[in-house]
Nucleic acid binder design. Structure first.
Lengths: 153, 153
DNA sequence: GTATGTGCAAACTTTTTGCACTTCG
DNA sequence: CGAAGTGCAAAAAGTTTGCACATAC
Protein backbone atom coordinates (compact mmCIF):
# COMPACT_ATOMS: atom_id res chain seq x y z
CA UNK A 1 0.00 0.00 0.00
CA UNK A 2 2.66 2.46 1.05
CA UNK A 3 4.80 1.19 -1.79
CA UNK A 4 1.95 2.12 -4.13
CA UNK A 5 2.13 5.65 -2.88
CA UNK A 6 5.87 5.59 -3.15
CA UNK A 7 5.58 4.53 -6.76
CA UNK A 8 3.00 7.21 -7.46
CA UNK A 9 5.36 9.88 -6.19
CA UNK A 10 8.28 8.54 -8.18
CA UNK A 11 6.21 8.33 -11.33
CA UNK A 12 5.15 11.92 -10.81
CA UNK A 13 8.80 12.94 -10.54
CA UNK A 14 8.57 13.82 -6.87
CA UNK A 15 10.88 12.89 -4.07
CA UNK A 16 9.49 10.38 -1.64
CA UNK A 17 9.12 11.90 1.81
CA UNK A 18 7.27 10.69 4.89
CA UNK A 19 5.08 13.80 4.75
CA UNK A 20 3.94 13.12 1.21
CA UNK A 21 3.30 9.48 1.95
CA UNK A 22 1.30 10.49 5.01
CA UNK A 23 -0.85 12.95 3.07
CA UNK A 24 -1.56 10.41 0.34
CA UNK A 25 -2.39 7.82 2.97
CA UNK A 26 -4.68 10.22 4.84
CA UNK A 27 -6.70 11.27 1.81
CA UNK A 28 -7.07 7.66 0.71
CA UNK A 29 -8.18 6.57 4.15
CA UNK A 30 -10.51 9.47 4.84
CA UNK A 31 -13.21 8.81 2.31
CA UNK A 32 -15.10 11.95 3.27
CA UNK A 33 -13.42 14.41 0.93
CA UNK A 34 -11.54 15.84 3.90
CA UNK A 35 -10.42 19.40 4.53
CA UNK A 36 -6.75 20.28 5.00
CA UNK A 37 -7.44 20.49 8.69
CA UNK A 38 -8.91 17.01 8.87
CA UNK A 39 -5.93 15.69 6.96
CA UNK A 40 -3.56 17.30 9.46
CA UNK A 41 -5.51 15.81 12.37
CA UNK A 42 -5.41 12.38 10.83
CA UNK A 43 -1.70 12.51 10.10
CA UNK A 44 -0.73 13.84 13.52
CA UNK A 45 -1.77 10.62 15.22
CA UNK A 46 1.15 8.86 13.60
CA UNK A 47 3.31 11.79 12.66
CA UNK A 48 2.81 14.49 15.30
CA UNK A 49 5.40 16.92 14.01
CA UNK A 50 4.00 17.62 10.60
CA UNK A 51 3.48 21.32 9.97
CA UNK A 52 0.26 22.74 8.58
CA UNK A 53 2.17 24.74 6.02
CA UNK A 54 3.81 21.56 4.81
CA UNK A 55 0.48 19.84 4.41
CA UNK A 56 -0.78 22.72 2.28
CA UNK A 57 2.39 22.61 0.20
CA UNK A 58 2.16 18.86 -0.21
CA UNK A 59 -1.51 19.05 -1.16
CA UNK A 60 -0.71 21.70 -3.74
CA UNK A 61 1.97 19.66 -5.41
CA UNK A 62 -0.08 16.47 -5.32
CA UNK A 63 -3.01 18.24 -6.95
CA UNK A 64 -0.70 19.77 -9.51
CA UNK A 65 0.70 16.33 -10.33
CA UNK A 66 -2.84 14.98 -10.39
CA UNK A 67 -2.38 12.47 -7.61
CA UNK A 68 -5.23 14.20 -5.76
CA UNK A 69 -8.11 16.48 -6.66
CA UNK A 70 -9.61 19.55 -5.06
CA UNK A 71 -13.30 19.67 -4.33
CA UNK A 72 -15.18 22.69 -3.19
CA UNK A 73 -18.63 23.08 -1.71
CA UNK A 74 -20.47 26.21 -0.72
CA UNK A 75 -18.68 26.30 2.60
CA UNK A 76 -15.47 28.18 2.44
CA UNK A 77 -12.94 25.41 2.85
CA UNK A 78 -11.15 23.44 0.25
CA UNK A 79 -11.56 19.71 0.34
CA UNK A 80 -9.59 16.92 -1.28
CA UNK A 81 -10.18 13.50 -2.76
CA UNK A 82 -8.06 10.60 -3.88
CA UNK A 83 -10.20 9.62 -6.84
CA UNK A 84 -8.57 11.13 -9.89
CA UNK A 85 -10.62 9.50 -12.62
CA UNK A 86 -13.65 11.34 -13.89
CA UNK A 87 -16.60 10.74 -11.66
CA UNK A 88 -19.57 12.57 -10.28
CA UNK A 89 -20.65 13.77 -6.88
CA UNK A 90 -23.74 13.34 -4.83
CA UNK A 91 -24.01 16.34 -2.57
CA UNK A 92 -26.29 17.26 0.29
CA UNK A 93 -26.12 20.93 1.16
CA UNK A 94 -27.64 20.55 4.62
CA UNK A 95 -25.08 18.05 5.83
CA UNK A 96 -22.26 19.15 3.51
CA UNK A 97 -21.76 15.49 2.74
CA UNK A 98 -20.22 14.43 -0.55
CA UNK A 99 -20.22 10.94 -2.01
CA UNK A 100 -18.62 9.80 -5.22
CA UNK A 101 -20.91 8.53 -7.95
CA UNK A 102 -19.67 6.36 -10.79
CA UNK A 103 -21.97 5.54 -13.69
CA UNK A 104 -20.60 4.35 -16.97
CA UNK A 105 -23.91 4.46 -18.79
CA UNK A 106 -24.37 8.05 -17.81
CA UNK A 107 -20.84 8.86 -18.92
CA UNK A 108 -21.51 7.31 -22.31
CA UNK A 109 -24.80 9.14 -22.65
CA UNK A 110 -23.13 12.46 -21.99
CA UNK A 111 -20.12 11.72 -24.10
CA UNK A 112 -22.31 10.82 -27.05
CA UNK A 113 -24.39 13.91 -26.55
CA UNK A 114 -21.41 16.22 -26.66
CA UNK A 115 -19.81 14.34 -29.55
CA UNK A 116 -22.80 15.41 -31.60
CA UNK A 117 -23.45 18.75 -30.04
CA UNK A 118 -20.71 21.29 -30.32
CA UNK A 119 -20.43 24.24 -27.97
CA UNK A 120 -19.19 27.16 -30.05
CA UNK A 121 -16.02 28.71 -28.70
CA UNK A 122 -15.40 26.00 -26.17
CA UNK A 123 -13.41 22.75 -26.17
CA UNK A 124 -14.62 20.21 -23.64
CA UNK A 125 -12.07 18.31 -21.61
CA UNK A 126 -14.32 16.75 -19.01
CA UNK A 127 -17.91 16.80 -17.83
CA UNK A 128 -18.75 16.40 -14.15
CA UNK A 129 -22.17 16.22 -12.59
CA UNK A 130 -23.19 17.61 -9.27
CA UNK A 131 -26.18 15.62 -8.23
CA UNK A 132 -27.72 17.69 -5.49
CA UNK A 133 -30.24 16.34 -3.05
CA UNK A 134 -30.47 14.57 0.26
CA UNK A 135 -29.15 11.31 1.64
CA UNK A 136 -31.90 9.13 3.04
CA UNK A 137 -30.15 8.36 6.29
CA UNK A 138 -29.35 11.83 7.35
CA UNK A 139 -26.46 11.72 9.74
CA UNK A 140 -25.91 15.38 9.67
CA UNK A 141 -22.38 15.50 10.91
CA UNK A 142 -21.93 19.21 11.06
CA UNK A 143 -25.17 20.13 12.75
CA UNK A 144 -25.26 23.25 10.66
CA UNK A 145 -28.16 23.70 8.34
CA UNK A 146 -27.97 25.49 5.08
CA UNK A 147 -30.82 27.51 3.78
CA UNK A 148 -29.95 27.29 0.17
CA UNK A 149 -27.64 25.15 -1.84
CA UNK A 150 -25.04 26.68 -4.02
CA UNK A 151 -23.11 25.52 -6.95
CA UNK A 152 -19.88 23.66 -7.01
CA UNK A 153 -18.11 24.33 -10.19
CA UNK B 1 -34.95 47.94 -13.88
CA UNK B 2 -34.38 49.17 -10.37
CA UNK B 3 -38.06 48.76 -9.70
CA UNK B 4 -37.67 45.10 -10.66
CA UNK B 5 -35.07 44.70 -7.97
CA UNK B 6 -37.25 46.61 -5.55
CA UNK B 7 -40.08 44.22 -6.24
CA UNK B 8 -37.81 41.21 -5.86
CA UNK B 9 -36.80 42.38 -2.41
CA UNK B 10 -40.36 43.08 -1.35
CA UNK B 11 -41.53 39.70 -2.60
CA UNK B 12 -38.74 38.06 -0.62
CA UNK B 13 -39.93 39.88 2.49
CA UNK B 14 -36.87 42.11 2.72
CA UNK B 15 -36.65 45.80 3.30
CA UNK B 16 -35.61 47.81 0.30
CA UNK B 17 -32.30 49.56 0.92
CA UNK B 18 -29.90 51.28 -1.45
CA UNK B 19 -27.23 48.74 -0.52
CA UNK B 20 -29.36 45.76 -1.48
CA UNK B 21 -30.44 47.39 -4.72
CA UNK B 22 -26.80 48.13 -5.49
CA UNK B 23 -25.70 44.54 -4.87
CA UNK B 24 -28.48 43.16 -7.04
CA UNK B 25 -27.65 45.64 -9.75
CA UNK B 26 -23.94 44.81 -9.55
CA UNK B 27 -24.36 41.06 -9.84
CA UNK B 28 -26.81 41.47 -12.71
CA UNK B 29 -24.48 43.86 -14.53
CA UNK B 30 -21.26 41.93 -13.91
CA UNK B 31 -21.93 38.84 -15.94
CA UNK B 32 -18.66 37.27 -14.84
CA UNK B 33 -19.81 35.46 -11.73
CA UNK B 34 -18.07 38.13 -9.68
CA UNK B 35 -16.38 37.82 -6.30
CA UNK B 36 -17.51 39.86 -3.31
CA UNK B 37 -14.56 42.13 -3.91
CA UNK B 38 -15.48 42.79 -7.51
CA UNK B 39 -19.01 43.55 -6.41
CA UNK B 40 -17.71 46.06 -3.86
CA UNK B 41 -15.51 47.72 -6.50
CA UNK B 42 -18.41 47.98 -8.90
CA UNK B 43 -20.76 49.44 -6.33
CA UNK B 44 -18.27 51.96 -4.98
CA UNK B 45 -18.28 53.90 -8.24
CA UNK B 46 -21.79 55.02 -7.53
CA UNK B 47 -22.04 54.37 -3.84
CA UNK B 48 -18.59 54.99 -2.33
CA UNK B 49 -19.54 54.49 1.30
CA UNK B 50 -20.75 50.93 1.19
CA UNK B 51 -18.98 48.73 3.73
CA UNK B 52 -17.47 45.39 2.81
CA UNK B 53 -19.16 43.74 5.77
CA UNK B 54 -22.48 45.03 4.53
CA UNK B 55 -21.91 43.56 1.09
CA UNK B 56 -21.19 40.17 2.63
CA UNK B 57 -24.30 40.42 4.78
CA UNK B 58 -26.41 41.48 1.83
CA UNK B 59 -25.03 38.68 -0.34
CA UNK B 60 -25.82 36.18 2.40
CA UNK B 61 -29.39 37.25 2.73
CA UNK B 62 -29.94 37.43 -1.03
CA UNK B 63 -28.59 33.91 -1.46
CA UNK B 64 -30.72 32.72 1.42
CA UNK B 65 -33.80 34.24 -0.22
CA UNK B 66 -32.71 32.75 -3.53
CA UNK B 67 -32.36 36.04 -5.37
CA UNK B 68 -28.74 35.14 -6.07
CA UNK B 69 -26.65 32.00 -6.13
CA UNK B 70 -23.21 31.15 -4.93
CA UNK B 71 -20.74 29.63 -7.35
CA UNK B 72 -17.54 27.93 -6.32
CA UNK B 73 -14.48 27.14 -8.34
CA UNK B 74 -11.24 25.47 -7.40
CA UNK B 75 -9.94 28.82 -6.23
CA UNK B 76 -10.65 29.93 -2.73
CA UNK B 77 -13.02 32.80 -3.27
CA UNK B 78 -16.76 32.74 -3.35
CA UNK B 79 -18.42 33.99 -6.48
CA UNK B 80 -22.01 34.96 -7.20
CA UNK B 81 -24.46 34.91 -10.04
CA UNK B 82 -27.84 36.37 -10.79
CA UNK B 83 -29.19 33.38 -12.70
CA UNK B 84 -31.30 31.41 -10.26
CA UNK B 85 -32.81 28.87 -12.62
CA UNK B 86 -31.06 25.55 -13.09
CA UNK B 87 -28.34 25.81 -15.66
CA UNK B 88 -24.86 24.52 -16.30
CA UNK B 89 -21.42 26.03 -16.34
CA UNK B 90 -18.58 26.08 -18.79
CA UNK B 91 -15.40 26.44 -16.81
CA UNK B 92 -11.77 26.95 -17.74
CA UNK B 93 -9.46 26.21 -14.84
CA UNK B 94 -6.49 28.07 -16.31
CA UNK B 95 -8.30 31.37 -16.70
CA UNK B 96 -10.85 30.76 -13.94
CA UNK B 97 -13.49 31.91 -16.38
CA UNK B 98 -17.08 30.73 -15.99
CA UNK B 99 -19.90 31.01 -18.47
CA UNK B 100 -23.46 29.91 -18.15
CA UNK B 101 -24.68 27.15 -20.41
CA UNK B 102 -28.35 26.54 -21.06
CA UNK B 103 -29.45 23.44 -22.97
CA UNK B 104 -32.97 22.16 -22.77
CA UNK B 105 -32.29 18.96 -24.71
CA UNK B 106 -29.51 18.08 -22.34
CA UNK B 107 -31.75 18.81 -19.36
CA UNK B 108 -34.39 16.48 -20.73
CA UNK B 109 -31.88 13.78 -21.44
CA UNK B 110 -30.60 13.86 -17.90
CA UNK B 111 -34.00 14.17 -16.35
CA UNK B 112 -35.20 11.11 -18.26
CA UNK B 113 -32.10 9.20 -17.32
CA UNK B 114 -32.59 9.79 -13.62
CA UNK B 115 -36.31 9.18 -13.80
CA UNK B 116 -35.50 5.63 -14.81
CA UNK B 117 -32.33 5.16 -12.83
CA UNK B 118 -32.62 5.37 -9.09
CA UNK B 119 -29.67 6.14 -6.86
CA UNK B 120 -30.08 4.05 -3.71
CA UNK B 121 -30.10 6.09 -0.55
CA UNK B 122 -30.26 9.42 -2.31
CA UNK B 123 -33.08 11.71 -3.43
CA UNK B 124 -32.19 14.02 -6.28
CA UNK B 125 -33.26 17.63 -6.16
CA UNK B 126 -31.23 19.04 -9.00
CA UNK B 127 -28.48 18.02 -11.43
CA UNK B 128 -25.89 20.50 -12.61
CA UNK B 129 -23.07 19.97 -15.05
CA UNK B 130 -19.62 21.40 -14.86
CA UNK B 131 -18.34 21.35 -18.38
CA UNK B 132 -14.62 21.75 -18.00
CA UNK B 133 -12.34 22.76 -20.83
CA UNK B 134 -10.92 25.79 -22.53
CA UNK B 135 -12.38 28.80 -24.26
CA UNK B 136 -11.09 29.19 -27.78
CA UNK B 137 -10.16 32.84 -27.60
CA UNK B 138 -8.14 32.94 -24.46
CA UNK B 139 -6.72 36.39 -25.02
CA UNK B 140 -9.28 38.39 -23.17
CA UNK B 141 -8.39 37.61 -19.60
CA UNK B 142 -8.03 41.08 -18.19
CA UNK B 143 -9.60 43.70 -20.41
CA UNK B 144 -13.28 44.28 -20.70
CA UNK B 145 -14.70 43.83 -24.13
CA UNK B 146 -17.91 45.66 -24.76
CA UNK B 147 -18.30 44.68 -28.39
CA UNK B 148 -18.42 40.95 -28.13
CA UNK B 149 -21.32 39.81 -26.08
CA UNK B 150 -20.14 36.24 -25.80
CA UNK B 151 -16.91 37.16 -24.08
CA UNK B 152 -17.03 37.59 -20.39
CA UNK B 153 -14.18 39.63 -18.96
C1' DG C 1 26.90 17.45 -2.51
C1' DT C 2 23.03 19.67 -4.23
C1' DA C 3 18.52 20.27 -5.34
C1' DT C 4 14.37 19.66 -3.11
C1' DG C 5 11.46 19.48 0.80
C1' DT C 6 10.12 20.69 5.70
C1' DG C 7 9.11 23.38 10.04
C1' DC C 8 7.91 27.42 11.83
C1' DA C 9 6.00 31.72 12.37
C1' DA C 10 4.53 35.70 10.36
C1' DA C 11 1.71 37.73 6.86
C1' DC C 12 -2.07 37.75 3.83
C1' DT C 13 -6.76 37.13 2.08
C1' DT C 14 -11.38 36.37 2.57
C1' DT C 15 -15.16 36.23 5.47
C1' DT C 16 -17.55 36.86 9.96
C1' DT C 17 -18.89 39.31 14.05
C1' DG C 18 -20.33 42.79 17.61
C1' DC C 19 -22.15 46.92 18.51
C1' DA C 20 -23.54 51.76 18.09
C1' DC C 21 -25.91 54.30 14.76
C1' DT C 22 -29.21 54.84 10.96
C1' DT C 23 -33.05 53.89 8.06
C1' DC C 24 -37.25 51.70 6.31
C1' DG C 25 -41.95 50.88 6.70
C1' DC D 1 -41.57 54.38 16.85
C1' DG D 2 -39.62 49.78 16.48
C1' DA D 3 -37.62 46.33 13.91
C1' DA D 4 -34.35 45.69 10.56
C1' DG D 5 -30.24 47.11 8.20
C1' DT D 6 -25.63 49.50 7.87
C1' DG D 7 -20.81 51.08 8.92
C1' DC D 8 -16.84 50.27 11.09
C1' DA D 9 -13.19 48.01 12.93
C1' DA D 10 -11.57 44.08 15.07
C1' DA D 11 -11.01 39.20 14.79
C1' DA D 12 -11.66 34.68 12.87
C1' DA D 13 -10.70 31.25 9.55
C1' DG D 14 -8.15 29.49 5.91
C1' DT D 15 -4.21 29.66 3.23
C1' DT D 16 0.34 31.34 1.59
C1' DT D 17 5.06 32.78 2.10
C1' DG D 18 10.05 33.35 3.40
C1' DC D 19 13.81 31.49 5.17
C1' DA D 20 16.92 28.59 7.90
C1' DC D 21 17.49 23.86 8.53
C1' DA D 22 16.99 18.97 7.08
C1' DT D 23 16.60 15.19 3.85
C1' DA D 24 16.33 12.46 -0.47
C1' DC D 25 18.75 10.86 -4.11
Amino acid sequence: MTSDFRQMLITAGLKVTPQRLAVLEAVHQLKTHPTADQIVDYIREFHPNIAIGTVYKVLDVLVEKMLLRKVKTERDVMRFEAETDTHHHLYCAESDRIEDYHDENLDNLIENYFNEKNIPGFSIKEVKLQIIGTFDNQNNTTGKSLENESIII
